[in-house]
Simulated assay, not measured.
Amino acid sequence: MANIVLVYASMTGNTEEIANAVAEGIQEAGESVVVKQVLDATAAELAEYEAILLGAYTWGDGELPDEFLDFYDELDQLDLTGKKAAVFGSCDSSYEHYGAAVDILTAKLRERGCEIVSEGLKIELAPSDEERELCRAFGRQFVSALQPAR
Results as ranks from 00 to 15, higher is better:
25 G>W: 05
5 V>W: 00
64 L>S: 10
106 T>E: 15
147 Q>N: 06
70 D>F: 00
80 L>Y: 02
62 G>L: 06
124 E>C: 07
16 E>D: 05
46 L>T: 11
129 D>Y: 13
49 Y>P: 12
149 A>N: 05
95 Y>I: 13
132 R>Y: 07
143 V>T: 08
114 C>T: 08
135 C>K: 11
142 F>C: 03
104 I>M: 13
31 E>C: 08
53 L>V: 07
73 D>E: 14
141 Q>L: 06
44 A>K: 12
54 L>S: 10
119 E>R: 04
74 E>Y: 05
149 A>L: 02
79 D>G: 01
42 T>K: 15
61 D>Q: 12
9 A>F: 00
49 Y>S: 11
99 G>W: 14
91 C>W: 14
148 P>Q: 14
121 L>G: 08
9 A>H: 03
59 W>D: 03
50 E>Q: 13
45 E>C: 02
113 G>W: 10
98 Y>L: 10
116 I>E: 09
84 K>T: 03
47 A>F: 03
38 V>H: 02
31 E>N: 13
56 A>N: 11
146 L>H: 03
77 Q>E: 14
18 I>W: 09
84 K>C: 11
50 E>P: 09
149 A>W: 01
47 A>D: 11
5 V>Y: 06
108 K>F: 03
39 L>G: 08
109 L>D: 03
147 Q>S: 03
124 E>R: 07
51 A>G: 08
1 M>A: 11
150 R>E: 10
13 G>C: 12
99 G>P: 13
26 I>T: 04
72 Y>C: 14
100 A>F: 01
76 D>I: 05
118 S>Y: 01
55 G>I: 10
38 V>P: 01
65 P>A: 09
40 D>Y: 07
133 E>K: 15
90 S>C: 06
21 A>V: 01
